[in-house]
Design a protein around this nucleic acid. Structure first.
Length: 599
RNA sequence: GCGCCUGUAGCUCAGCGGAUUAGAGCAUCUGACUACGGAUCAGAGGGUCGGGAGUUCGAAUCUCUCCAGGCGCGCCA
């Protein structure tokens, strides 16, 4: 309905300008056009659109809002094109104009939508050649993925999917923590307790590695001699020592295998490009900053002083780019990454926009890094950098999510539990209903429902707030949950199985019931929702839409017969079922959530 | 102390500067199964939108201020 609302927007604008020609000229001379403020109706009883502008224009035009509204309506009534789309406009309250679409217009629109594979969502017209980088997930080598990575991974994937669907070229980058002091520590510890792990592939699994990591960290914090040894290992690694490199590769491979299992389960595509990738560019970052006069030395460390951000003492906060010992830190890597991503190929990605999906706690860090990149002139004209923050994952007690013993929950275990609970629930239901299904079916459905529930629960919440994790709530069969949405699709599939030809002819469409029109209006909103989600980078808006669509469909399904209806209603209703299924499937796909025919 | 984020129904959350009724879901209560899967649908009760001030014709929404909570704050990432 995007095109339609644009068309009506133009018609209303023209009507306003015809009604008040002098004011229009004056306004244009001041560089501001009169704005009729066309918006979707705030409530269904107000129709489909409302014009709010009359109230604001009252002062400017020195007339009462109702009078202005009346003048606009008079003009609209002379517009043939407008009258072919909308019923006669109505003035309400202090001066709102309510517009409602004609049924014939809705029928024409829905007919178009039925034929459109993209369901009305336009392909982007610009910047297809320049990629958008979506930086998400980013686990650390030698550590297991935990709930902290869940949100970044799920939200990042969905945002990437939506941008891809809009026609952008998207670079999904996994900025894994594969470099830095922790490797010196880990290699030096393993050399002492498990030397075979550093030379033999698969000698130890990641679970062991995580334990080794903990031991190494503990030792590092308490043992000065060990710290020195670790630093030596880091230097060796950075200088390309073959033994150190081999050890590093083995550690990375081991971790990668584990990450990939998770990504496979979650159906996530990512290009791994870890911190180590930027290693060759770090020195240039320092030199560049030095040349542009941004770099200062403070307490032996090379820093850039941030504008407008002060430290505890009230002085400008320095951001350390090179440590006293000459080592680089994450700010250095992030700056190198920004520079590389914006640089033209082949020395970079030639990106138009960088999107970082990380927890809100890193907001200050990114503010600083972005500011430095801007001052160093690494962000080209038309280039954008954006931090897309999200809140903490909390348990039902409102505290940071942990196991009972207080440990971090592994992502693997969390997914297992979701799937396990879905399976238990399904088996119980099958028994209750006396249904018999194959083991394959049970496994497939439980897996799909479990993963869908985890993803949907996360995505359906506004990402900036903390997110309270609850298996019971996400797996609930009623309410705004994945199972509820999946069930709507299963009902449609059921109609098809019972002999409903969803591809029935749709040349002549005719609707009479209000439930049909509610469903049609909901279906036509899809394109606007997608475009809005793309602008705001808020996938929960898409979730809200899909939930509302499911509700409207369930009402339709409950109150209007499809298969038992007489023609032509039967075919017309089947067409609505088909479009509902397509919309739900596409919407879920853009969230990265798989769907089912039966459950 | 400074910075960022959050505060909306008993609970979990939506909410795009607009209509003298601020929306969902869960939970609670009342209804509807010889129609396509009742994993559903129809309805009811429940809110001084953290407090105060300001801008505006109009504020949950914008500004300021206070209160409460979370997270972060120079050589980890």
């Amino acid at each position: 309905m995007l095109k339609l609302s644009n068309a009506i927007g133009v018609q209303v604008q023209n009507a306003l300008e015809r009604a008040f020609p002098e004011a229009t000229t004056t306004a244009l001379a001041n560089g501001k056009a009169l704005n009729p403020q066309l918006a979707p109706a705030s409530k269904p009883e107000f129709g489909d659109f409302q014009v709010n502008g009359a109230l604001q224009l009252a002062k400017q035009l020195k007339q009462s809002p109702r009078h202005i509204a009346l003048a606009i309506v008079e003009q609209l009534k002379t517009d043939e094109a407008f009258l072919s789309l909308c019923n006669s406009p109505e003035i309400a309250g202090p001066g709102f104009i309510n517009l409602s679409l004609k049924n014939e217009c809705l029928e024409t629109e829905i007919k178009k939508q039925l034929k459109d594979e993209r369901l009305g969502v336009p392909l982007t017209s610009q910047g297809k050649d320049k990629p958008i980088v979506v930086d998400f997930s980013s686990p650390n080598i030698a550590k297991e993925m935990h709930v902290g990575h869940l949100r970044s991974t799920i939200i990042g994937d969905s945002i990437a999917r939506i941008l891809e669907f809009r026609g952008y070229s998207v670079l999904r980058l996994n900025h894994v923590g594969d470099w830095g002091t922790q490797f010196g520590m880990l290699i030096s510890h393993l050399k002492r307790v498990a030397p075979s792990a550093l030379t033999t592939a698969n000698a130890i699994d990641l679970g062991d590695l995580v334990n080794f990591y903990r031991q190494a960290k503990q030792r590092f914090d308490n043992d000065v001699e060990f710290q020195d040894a670790s630093r030596q290992e880091v230097l060796k690694l950075q200088n390309g020592d073959s033994e150190a490199l081999k050890a590093w590769h083995l550690l990375c491979d081991q971790s990668r295998k584990d990450f990939n299992q998770i990504y496979k389960r979650l159906d996530i595509r990512l290009t791994e490009r870890g911190e180590s990738f930027y290693n060759p560019f770090l020195k240039n970052v320092i030199d560049d900053l030095d040349n542009s006069g941004l770099l200062i030395t403070d307490e032996g460390a090379k820093c850039v002083l941030l504008n407008g951000i002060s430290s505890k003492e009230g002085k400008p906060l320095p951001m350390i780019i090179q440590k006293r010992d000459g080592g680089f830190n994450y700010a250095t890597t992030d700056l190198a990454a920004i520079r590389y991503r914006f640089s033209e190929s082949p020395k970079g990605d030639g990106a138009q926009r960088l999107i970082y999906i990380t927890d809100a706690g890193q907001a200050n860090h990114f503010t600083g890094v972005f500011q430095i990149a801007k001052r160093a002139k690494w962000i080209p004209k038309g280039g954008h950098v954006e931090h897309v923050p999200f809140g903490l994952v909390q348990g039902e007690d409102g505290k940071k999510l942990k196991t009972r013993s207080g440990e971090t929950i592994r992502l693997r275990d969390l997914l297992d539990e979701a799937v396990g609970r879905a399976e238990k629930d399904l088996r119980g239901r099958l028994k209750e209903e006396g249904r018999k299904e194959t083991e394959n079916f049970i496994k497939h459905v439980s897996n799909t429902v479990g993963i869908a529930a985890v993803k949907y629960a996360d995505l359906s919440q506004n990402r900036v707030t903390n997110y309270q994790f609850s298996f019971d709530r996400m797996l609930a069969l009623q309410g705004n949950t994945a199972p509820y949405l999946l069930y709507a699709l299963v009902r449609i599939a059921g109609i098809a199985r019972k002999g409903g030809d969803l591809k029935a002819a749709t040349e002549k469409l005719e609707f009479n019931e209000h439930q049909e029109f509610s469903l049609i209006k909901e279906l036509l909103r899809f394109d606007e929702v997608i475009v809005e989600v793309e602008e705001e980078l808020l996938p929960n808006r898409l979730c809200t839409y899909l939930f509302e669509l499911s509700q409207v469909f369930n009402r339709f399904y409950d109150q209007v017969p499809v298969l038992k209806a007489n023609e032509p209603s039967r075919s017309c209703r089947l067409a609505l079922c088909r479009l509902t299924a397509k919309t739900l499937k596409l919407g879920m796909d853009l969230l990265g959530i798989p769907t089912l025919e039966r459950m």
